[in-house]
Design a protein around this nucleic acid. Structure first.
Lengths: 115, 115
DNA sequence: GGTATATACCTTGGAGTGATAGGTATATGG
DNA sequence: CCATATACCTATCACTCCAAGGTATATACC
């Protein structure tokens, strides 16, 4: 699993969640809306995607959480760990490479272009 | 399944295969290598991805095939149908929208930016 | 002539991801 | 007081891709 050219089954939820939390600590419900808002409705993950993902990321050591009470409401805020930052950098670079490759093929450009 | 904001489970193999065949008729084995070549190894689908996909696309009416013998070798060439062209346009626009959204969020830009 | 590699097609089985659909509880607005 | 928004959570299903294997012919090498 993972020589670099394989396995790109999106991972977009993970990528976006890590990226957003990198900016500032956030909680699940907030992430669901932030993704929808910032993507202008192009991307909309349900809570059924985000919450399990947050738990997996925390268990994997990419995130850590603390419970905070706001307005009598209990929220679980997540922050990025050092490992999470590395994971993010990795996913982002993989994504960029992939997106560039797709764009190149879509545009009909040839592979071997002169430097 | 398909209101526009959901279901983006990549579909990259389908998108790329349709796009390549749009340029000229191609056969399965050729597609496997063309994708690897043009993406500079960023994307590499095995034959186990391409062949079943080609069959599904033909059954769905997006492609049609004809058998041709070259050098005593039997190849199955695929061409795009009108329905396939529509499907391609659809996937391409969905992909572009998605990729733009991801890029926006990765870059940390805000959603509501003045025009 | 024999063996390895490249070409060219194919299918089966499994793994992982995300989408749907639920389920709980508290605050706010009408 | 009832509906909606906030905020958390899980279970299940479907789908897509990936790995692995299986067949057969042509070509290159020794």
């Amino acid at each position: 699993m993972g020589d670099g050219a394989s396995s790109f089954t999106s991972g977009i939820p993970e990528l976006l969640v890590l990226r957003l939390i990198q900016e500032r600590e956030m909680y699940g419900y907030e992430l669901v809306q932030a993704i929808r808002d910032r993507s202008d409705d192009a991307i909309a993950f349900g809570e059924g995607v985000i919450y399990p993902l947050l738990h997996a990321l925390e268990q994997g050591g990419a995130l850590s959480s603390r419970r905070k009470s706001v307005n009598g409401r209990s929220r679980v805020y997540y922050v990025l760990t050092a490992a999470g930052a590395r994971r993010l950098a990795d996913l982002a670079s993989t994504w960029t490479r992939l997106a560039d490759a797709v764009r190149t093929i879509l545009s009909g450009e040839d592979h071997a272009l002169a430097l």
